[in-house]
């Protein structure tokens, strides 16, 4: 296991390197001179040259890449072109809300979707299954911002149970933290509940048709025992895949939900960076979300080999 883990981690290094290079090259190759943007319209050619020199733009592209990468590896992502603040501090600032939202969303999604999917599989083709599956189509196809606004309208404006917008860090007390997080979590988890419950349903149905399920029944196991002791363990691999990918997707920042609920997370940062053409910020955020993807994928692969002993690479 340790050897396998080591091999997998090692194999991720070239992937990360390629990702870093593409992220770097993407912005260097795109039209527009960052120095010109930063220096403003009135800058003289001499000022521009000085600016380029101080930013390292007058060196060869490979040299620039090496310098940039070595800084990134030390945790120095450069300075935001717009605010002039170090990117590292900007990201760290926004990490808390995004992370909290991601964690609560995925927890809710898993806790709801797995039982719902299992029940749908259980009653396959019956009314309950149909109701659950139609609900899942709706949850998946209605845009997130509509769900968000409807929830605000009903539960905040209407019943007044939750604050309309905003975010309170955990340090300001768990009550406020939870209250502010509830609606965004409900909103964002809807499509994930839909997707995960569908995968759970189809994998459980598939597994319930396997020969070893018949074997389990012939041993005298109850239907519930068959389900929990034999079916779920075997259905776990596809479920783990979709849950893992959902986490990666969520960590990348929830642009829409964070905007609707005015949460100062990474998603909002992405939006701000794009709108103000803050190249350093865009670069940093793309890089971080790519790294997250690679790491989560690695974690899923490792999880596979724990869930299914047949999987050994």
């Amino acid at each position: 296991m340790a050897k396998y883990l080591f091999r997998r981690v090692l194999a991720s290094v070239p992937v990360l390197f390629v990702v870093a290079f593409i992220v770097f090259a993407l912005l260097r190759l795109s039209p527009g001179d960052p120095a010109m943007i930063l220096a403003g319209d009135g800058a003289t050619p001499a000022q521009l040259d000085a600016m380029r020199h101080s930013m390292g733009l007058d060196r060869g592209i490979i040299e620039q890449f090496v310098i940039w990468l070595s800084k990134v590896l030390r945790g120095d992502f450069g300075v935001s072109l717009i605010t002039g603040l170090p990117m590292r501090d900007l990201v760290l600032d926004r990490l808390g809300p995004s992370f909290a939202l991601c964690l609560s969303t995925i927890t809710l999604a898993v806790v709801v979707a797995i039982p719902v999917g299992v029940v749908a599989a259980w009653r396959q083709g019956r009314a309950l299954d149909r109701i659950i599956m139609s609900g899942s189509v709706m949850a998946f196809s209605v845009p997130v911002f509509i769900i968000g606004y409807v929830l605000i309208l009903l539960l905040s404006r209407g019943l007044g149970w939750f604050p309309v917008q905003g975010y309170r860090p955990l340090s300001e007390g768990i009550g406020a933290f939870a209250l502010h997080l509830t609606l965004p979590t409900l909103t964002m988890s809807a499509p994930f509940i839909a997707v995960i419950s569908r995968i759970v349903r189809s994998s459980v149905i598939e597994v319930m048709g396997e020969d070893y399920i018949r074997t389990a029944r012939s041993k005298g196991l109850s239907e519930r025992g068959v389900l929990f002791k034999h079916a779920l363990g075997n259905a776990a691999v596809p479920i783990a895949t979709v849950v893992g990918l959902s986490i990666a997707l969520l960590l990348g920042g929830a642009v829409v939900t964070e905007s609707v609920f005015n949460i100062p997370g990474l998603g909002r940062l992405v939006l701000e960076a794009v709108l103000s053409r803050d190249f350093t910020a865009i670069q940093t955020l793309i890089l971080l979300s790519s790294v997250t993807y690679v790491v989560i994928n690695l974690a899923i692969d490792v999880l596979y080999s724990i869930l299914d002993p047949r999987i050994r690479y």
Binding site: Y212, T215, H230, G233, N234, P309
Partner: peptide, 8 residues
């Protein structure tokens, strides 16, 4: 080949 639960 398929009569036994593969993950136990």
């Amino acid at each position: 080949m398929t009569a036994l639960n593969p993950v136990q």
